[in-house]
Design a protein around this nucleic acid. Structure first.
Lengths: 345, 345
DNA sequence: AAACTTGATGAAAACGATTACGTTCCGCGT
DNA sequence: ACGCGGAACGTAATCGTTTTCATCAAGTTT
């Protein structure tokens, strides 16, 4: 093991208490001794042992993130947002992802105990029972995009409903009437909200138009298959709203393969605005979710909880979503990839 | 604080030593007492405190990853690979990224002290001096894609040279002669190796053909600008090799905007094979780097070091790169996005 | 039956920090 | 001269584990 506080104390000819005080900037230490201690600490390359420190202070200065799977651009952005916000506050980030089943997620959660000051949870397994069973009580937690509206924990999610409404209304305004919807994984809350918005907006703005709903699983392949089904329908829908961008991209591939034009014959739209969306041909109309901001907001809410353990968490916050119109629903679109990228934050 | 080992001991009417032995699966405890202890521990929801444990065992079961910036698909994949491999070994992952300057990176490195059992470092600031100053000696470390060939630390990088050779040779075999190269950020080792391969392969297989090199910075915008420069040249190059995929995509945008055909008028190729590469139009020829595998290999090498602190690290390992031919350099290309995606690992 | 092994268990010492509580010492007011 | 207050610093308890070593009972060998 390296150099400990005792070594510094001996070398500076003071007690460990003084070293601790000096290095933590507490009062009760002369300018002279402080200087000497600092000098010795620097010379010896002393770094306090985090384990020992957090054993007594009960603080780890680390927050944990429990995520479903790191695959894809969505999580890349999410982690980035969280990491950035955490760094700004001097916190560390412990990530844990890719849990195949609830048991694995539970084990991961348990392993976080005593390692983190707070928890960011985004997991398909995180239903009410799971959380009650496995969440260490007393540990500040923020739930993200989970299936339940827990009043025991703070929660944060994307405004799926609002975003999807904007999108469907846009399609109808452009003259598309027979708008189909491609679903995501079952029991996914985001998908459910997007679908509800689709159905209600359709009913309101295109009355008499029956909803057309196809299954999907968030992967591009399922979007491709849905696209093929769609093309075989009589009458053929003239627009598709996929529950996420990857499926929309798959759908575009199917439609172009069949020789139809987008958006003249069929319009296509997605959800998320992954970076890829503006590079596919035609560029994809979608709903932009400020993913990094979602992560940042979640972390900030968590910090509030950590610092004010007493105050109850704010019930449920929403991150707004905005419509991004591109060529896949608008033949007039003149967007230039590069100009767009340059103005991105 | 929650329930401690003492609570369990009292409730099970044994000493804390027995509880520790029982729960850690050590010998020297009757089946009967073991059962009782297990039962009590489960009932009380006992979870050992990690800080206390690692204070005495000197193990954190956590590895740290120091990364430059989480932006983009590359790091998403890299973290995913590391996380997967770590999880398989019961290790946790502490990530730290986005360090604007060397001081910040140094602080991050210091903060890792005592928090991790080993370190994965991929940082532009990680030169020899920086490492000597800030790397806690004795802490197992694996360097990834760094500028130096340190013999003090294990290192791991992508076979940039081999991959780029394959790519340039492919272009020349397809009949392209005036192949241009778009550089990445200066002082980036990966870029330097790719450029060297470009120059040497060109000299060998297309003797007399002078290299054409344009600046870039890994962003799509710089690729776009390079594309415009390229189009203004006399004579106009008939192929471009961009040092990464994002620049290649920007370059494609510039070429298509000018109304030229790819690959008939100009061929385009990149490096990395980011997921997006197969969805742009035309689909991008590139060199596939198994990024997740890179992360996994790095982690495994780190584990070897952790478990055998005595044996010196293996000098320098390479992760191989493979050529992926798509429409941007091959008009015959019949690839189907969906089929490809389905067979992806 | 005494001595000796064996295996289960408990008491207590680590680990490296923070911090409550004493102690010392100096200066000041009376 | 004496007491008193407060600043500077040291002693030791503490956090929750693991682990060494001693203890003790029961069985085995002679």
């Amino acid at each position: 093991m390296g150099v400990t506080i005792k070594d510094v104390a001996r070398e500076a000819k003071v007690s460990v208490a003084s070293v601790s005080r000096a290095l933590n900037g507490q009062a009760g230490v002369t300018a002279e001794t402080l200087g000497r201690i600092r000098e010795v600490a620097a010379r010896l390359r002393y770094v306090p042992d985090n384990a020992a420190r957090s054993l007594i202070t009960r603080r780890t200065h680390t927050i944990g993130a429990l995520l479903p799977d790191l695959f894809g651009e969505f999580f890349s952005e999410l982690i980035r947002g969280i990491d950035l916000a955490a760094r700004a506050r001097g916190l560390h980030l412990l990530v844990s992802s890719s849990h195949d089943d609830a048991d694995e997620a539970a084990a991961a959660l348990r392993a976080m105990q005593g390692r983190v000051d707070g928890l960011l949870v985004m997991s398909p397994h995180a239903d009410a029972d799971f959380l009650r069973q496995n969440l260490p009580q007393g540990l500040p937690t923020v739930l993200m995009n989970t299936v339940l509206d827990s009043d025991a924990h703070a929660a944060l999610s994307v405004d799926n409903y609002g975003g999807a409404c904007l999108l469907v209304r846009h399609l109808i305004e452009r003259g598309y009437r027979q708008v189909a919807f491609i679903q995501g994984p079952p029991k996914n809350r985001d998908v459910a909200e997007r679908e509800l918005a689709y159905r209600e907006t359709l009913a309101e703005h295109a009355p008499g138009q029956a909803p057309i709903v196809l299954p999907g699983d968030f992967n591009e392949i399922s979007g491709y298959r849905a696209g093929q089904q769609l093309l075989a329908m009589q009458p053929r829908p003239d627009a598709v709203f996929a529950a996420n961008d990857m499926m929309a991209i798959g759908c575009i591939a199917a439609i172009r393969e069949a020789g139809l034009r987008i958006p003249e014959d069929i319009a296509v739209a997605g959800f998320d605005d992954v970076p890829m969306a503006r590079y596919v041909t035609p560029a994809l109309t979608t709903v932009r979710v400020r993913i990094a901001e979602l992560g940042k907001t979640a972390l900030e809410q968590l910090i509030v909880q950590i610092e004010h353990t007493d105050t109850p968490p704010r019930a449920h916050q929403r991150v707004k979503a905005e419509l991004v119109i591109r060529a896949s629903s608008d033949s007039q679109w003149q967007g230039n990839d590069m100009r767009f990228a340059a103005t991105q934050d």
